Lab assay of single mutants.
Amino acid sequence: HHHHHGSGALAALHAEGPLAGLPVTRSDARVLIFNEWEERKKSDPWLRLDMSDKAIFRRYPHLR
């Protein structure tokens, strides 16, 4: 159930192989992290948004 927010940013994801479903670039990863943060913020208003490279690598090590 993907609803768009204002920016309408869509992340490019790997379609197949071992990385299927994972973001292709760091900016794609940022979109995913932001979208998930927006969702989680509803139940956790104090949740901090962390889109640093460090956060991205921790989450998606293949982007190193």
Rank of each mutant, 00 (worst) to 15 (best):
N35V: 12
D50E: 07
A20Q: 14
Y60F: 14
G21D: 04
R40T: 06
H4S: 10
L49P: 05
H4Q: 10
L47I: 11
L32D: 01
H5A: 11
H5R: 13
E16L: 06
R59C: 06
R26M: 15
H4K: 10
D44V: 04
L32T: 04
A29V: 01
P23F: 00
L19E: 03
L32G: 01
E16V: 10
A15H: 10
T25Q: 05
A11I: 10
R40K: 15
H3R: 09
P23A: 01
R30I: 11
R58A: 15
I56E: 00
L10C: 11
L10Q: 15
R58H: 14
G21L: 03
P23M: 00
S7H: 15
P23Q: 02
K54G: 10
D53I: 10
A11E: 06
G6L: 15
L49T: 04
H62I: 01
T25W: 04
A12D: 11
A11R: 03
T25V: 02
P18I: 07
F57G: 09
L49I: 06
D53K: 07
K42P: 06
M51C: 11
K42N: 08
A20P: 02
P61I: 02
P18C: 05
P61T: 02
P18L: 06
L47R: 06
P18T: 06
V31M: 13
H2K: 10
M51A: 06
T25G: 07
G21H: 04
G21P: 02
I56D: 00
H1N: 09
W46A: 14
K42S: 09
K41E: 04
D53L: 15
S7D: 13
R64A: 12
L22M: 07
A15Q: 14
R30V: 06
P45R: 08
D44T: 05
A29I: 00
R48Q: 12
A9R: 14
L19N: 07
R40F: 07
A15C: 11
L32P: 00
A55C: 06
D28P: 01
G17L: 03
I33V: 06
W37E: 01
H4Y: 08
L19Q: 05
H2M: 12
R40G: 12
M51N: 05
G6P: 12
S27L: 15
H4C: 13
H1R: 09
H3F: 14
W37D: 00
A55D: 05
R64N: 09
G21Q: 09
L19T: 03
T25Y: 04
F57H: 11
H5W: 13
G8V: 08
D28E: 03
A29N: 00
T25L: 05
D53V: 08
E39H: 09
R59W: 05
V24W: 03
G8F: 08
A12L: 14
W37C: 01
W46R: 13
L32V: 09
L32A: 05
T25I: 01
P61M: 01
H62W: 02
